[in-house]
């Protein structure tokens, strides 16, 4: 489901303009960070654990309570990502701007992270509409669905936003070049994108247990989807590791 990611990122294209740096339009496609076991979002299952430490009777409060925790954790995760940035792309970048670039990176990190979080939260609105279109209940559970989309948005979009420094053009490049095979390679070599894809797939298949007649609390909307998103994201990230350079 790369479509979802693409469509939603286009939403923030204009926002990006102010924040983004002048360096872009490189013809060479490159993943802007080094994949590493460090970048596996191990915090996600921990947060999930925190969330479900409470009672399951009211998913709404749990979802609300989970958001600050998730935001904080993702913020930390964002720092981790910026630390793994390829050392300002030494070999390919124009030398004159190289140092400049480095400076900006350092200066912009807090803005980048905060901006990414805000944009992720904004992106939860289109994501919300998509989830509704895909069949989320319309009556009575709209709040839950929206909270779900905030969670998913923070998990799915935020790492990508940070890693591409809110640079949409550069992000698009991951998908544009040459033959089809390369696109797929880009997808699974890019640990963060593959984590997002894993999250989407996880959320997608998270709906399966809902109709079963086990009558458990966790079968309530939207818990299985949330769990699917979290776990899928983690698995995607791990699965991508062997392929990354």
């Amino acid at each position: 489901m790369p479509t979802k990611a693409k469509k939603s990122v286009s939403f923030q294209a204009s926002t990006t303009d102010e924040l983004k740096e002048e360096t872009n339009a490189e013809s060479q496609v490159e993943i802007p960070f080094n994949s590493s076991a460090l970048l596996v979002p191990f915090h996600l299952p921990v947060i999930l654990g925190f969330i479900f430490n409470g009672l399951l009777e009211n998913p709404r409060t749990l979802l609300i309570q989970g958001i600050p925790t998730l935001v904080a954790a993702q913020f930390g995760y964002g720092i981790l990502i910026t630390k793994r940035f390829k050392s300002s792309n030494t070999n390919s970048k124009k030398k004159s701007k190289s140092s400049n670039n480095n400076n900006k990176n350092n200066n912009n990190t807090p803005i980048l992270l905060v901006g990414s979080i805000l944009i992720s939260i904004l992106l939860s609105i289109p994501l919300f509409i998509v989830i509704i279109l895909f069949g989320a209940p319309l009556y009575g559970l709209l709040t839950e669905t929206f909270l779900l989309s905030v969670h998913l948005s923070l998990i799915l979009f935020y790492p990508i936003l940070v890693s591409y420094k809110l640079d949409f053009a550069q992000f698009l490049q991951s998908f544009t070049p040459g033959s089809g095979d390369q696109i797929y390679q880009q997808l699974y070599k890019n640990q963060l994108i593959f984590a997002s894809i894993g999250g989407v797939v996880g959320a997608w298949f998270g709906v399966l247990p809902i109709p079963l007649d086990w009558d458990r609390d966790w079968q309530q909307w939207p818990i299985t989807i949330l769990v699917g998103g979290y776990i899928g994201s983690l698995l995607g990230s791990i699965l991508s590791l062997p392929f990354s350079e």
């Binding site: 489901m1 479509t3 895909f134 069949g135 709906v207 399966l208 809902i210 109709p211 079963l212 007649d213």
Partner: peptide
């Protein structure tokens, strides 16, 4: 699964969205 039979519409809804997206691709 008896509950899948009772809630078969969920399965079809799942396939419905999948097939629409497939057709879209």
């Amino acid at each position: 699964g008896s509950s899948f039979i009772e809630e078969e519409h969920q399965i079809w809804w799942f396939f419905m969205i999948m097939s629409t997206l497939l057709l879209m691709a």
